[in-house]
Nucleic acid binder design. Structure first.
Length: 122
DNA sequence: TTTCTCACA
DNA sequence: TGTGAGCA
């Protein structure tokens, strides 16, 4: 049943609608796009169009920001784990790795782990 | 009217 | 991040 997923990915909201739905400023929404936290589509006239998934993610991002997360940390949060967040089985090592990474980036002293994390950290 | 990009008394 | 300019 992949139809739902498809519909959730349909870009149907204008930035104005997204602003109301997320209570974020257009500036913020565009900024998060610039940081690759979301990737809305564009119309033939260069207008941004957001999907249900985009709005959903924006809502999450809003919470993370409120909790003090760095855009960089959030970026890695979405980039790294394939099994995403909550409800999925993660091994202890996965959790430790993800946490380690996010905590480091949180401080802003480390570059976003692009090496993909080759080694172990204890 | 709304959104876009760019730039900052 | 906000805000205003000048377009589309």
């Amino acid at each position: 049943m992949k139809e739902k997923e498809l519909r959730r990915s349909l870009a149907v909201f204008s930035i104005g609608t997204v602003m109301k739905l997320t209570d974020l400023s257009a500036r913020q929404v565009r900024y998060y796009e610039e940081r690759d936290l979301i990737t809305p589509q564009r119309t033939d006239t260069n207008r941004r169009m957001y999907s249900l998934n985009d709005v959903d993610r924006l809502l999450d991002i809003k919470d993370y920001i409120a909790e003090g997360w760095t855009v960089q940390a959030i970026y890695n949060h979405y980039k790294k784990p394939k099994e995403e967040h909550e409800h999925k089985p993660l091994t202890d090592d996965d959790v430790r790795r993800i946490l380690y990474n996010e905590i480091l980036n949180q401080g802003g002293f480390v570059q976003p782990d692009e090496s993909g994390y080759s080694g172990q950290h204890h």
